[in-house]
Design a protein around this nucleic acid. Structure first.
Lengths: 210, 210
DNA sequence: ATGTTTCCACCTAGGTGAAAACTT
DNA sequence: AAGTTTTCACCTAGGTGGAAACAT
């Protein structure tokens, strides 16, 4: 309901690193999911404003299924095409930002609230904490929630305190992505290798021959 | 003023891992300090109780100079002996626990509040954040502070909010240590290698001949 | 000489794309 | 054969004791 990335009814949730997200979005963002869980790249980072400094809030993230289709990368045209009907997104508990709960002043003082520890997986069975289960080759979009909670809320209580009807949320079109288990578009691979310190292509493997 | 590790006037600060600390203390705990900063081992870990669930607290740690002497490890007897007068402990800003500030409920819900990121250094010039400057070959003791603060306190405000006169503290005799730049007592080395996954002795270095 | 500090090869820990393996 | 997933060697990042260097 927010869409343009600015204001909710009262709380402001702003997407950061919009340039990076847009660069990926132009190529058709591919997000890798693996059995053991893979971090997102780009990372979802937001800034918060217009919270009450003294009140306590939780911040969490869940995924929206953009549609119910399955996609396929077609090589001659190098484009993503619809390839049948996908599976519905299962009910998943949201990823709670590890700084939760914190006061409004603390959230607003942070220059960037990053969801860099979140991992995406295709492993339906083992439900590891901090991971969100998605289906491969489908289109999703992250959504950020901000919810006021009682100051005595602890991490252990958090899941039961989540109540979207009492929370405000925002989602950003430039963060839409298609899940893959291996990159399809080599331009995406190159862009990620250039942006992510962990992502470096292989060197020459003939060195063992010496 | 607390000493036995139980109650302050109202807030309870309990040292955890007392067995490990006592084991080191029996041998004369040596704590390595380096130019770039070295983590403590053992790590100071505490549990908190009797806080007000809704109130906001900061938790921080500083060091007490146990005495003004300099020590030396004497090999024939394998014991630490007094070796002159040391330098006074400089005024240092305390190490603020990274979960600060949090509500009483959050602190009490934590099974262990660990100061594992704190680093000790002998580098007087460059004051890197998260490090405490100590003098080598002197005797110190960590002290834990708990201070109630305004809920709108942010991380940026923290140093100016620190006011020991409004805080309660505790210190534990079994955490006393002597600073070194290299281990003196080989039993301490062995004990740490057995306890710390990062501390492994060197393997045979002749492999390059092969 | 001897006591003290710095430097560095060896670890742990864990993220990543490409090759290999697995489907259908 | 072609599409999809798993595995794994190669990275980054950073903690650690011992050897080497530095004092005095």
């Amino acid at each position: 309901e927010v869409g343009l990335g600015l204001s909710c009814s009262s709380i402001t949730i702003q997407l950061l690193q919009t340039d990076l997200w847009s660069k990926f979005n132009d190529l058709g963002t591919e997000m890798i999911i693996t059995k053991n869980g893979r971090r997102m790249f780009p990372v979802v980072k937001v800034g918060l404003r217009d919270l009450h400094p003294h009140k306590t809030y939780m911040v969490y993230l869940d995924m929206i299924a953009v549609d119910t289709r399955r996609y396929r990368y077609v090589y001659p045209s190098s484009r993503w095409m619809v390839a049948g009907t996908g599976e519905p997104l299962g009910d998943h508990s949201p990823y709670i930002h590890p700084d939760s709960p914190s006061t409004g002043a603390q959230w607003m003082a942070a220059p960037s609230i990053a969801f860099d520890r979140l991992k995406l997986t295709n492993n339906k069975t083992r439900l590891t904490k901090g991971q969100i289960i998605l289906h491969s080759m489908q289109k999703y979009q992250p959504r950020i929630w901000v919810q006021e909670v009682d100051p005595s809320t602890t991490c252990a209580d958090l899941p039961s305190f989540i109540n979207p009807s009492q929370a405000e949320s925002a989602s950003f079109p430039e963060t839409t992505f298609i899940t893959v288990t291996a990159y399809q578009n080599q331009q995406i691979t190159r862009l990620k290798i250039d942006s992510n310190p962990f992502a470096k292509g292989f060197r020459d493997t003939t060195k063992q021959k010496e």
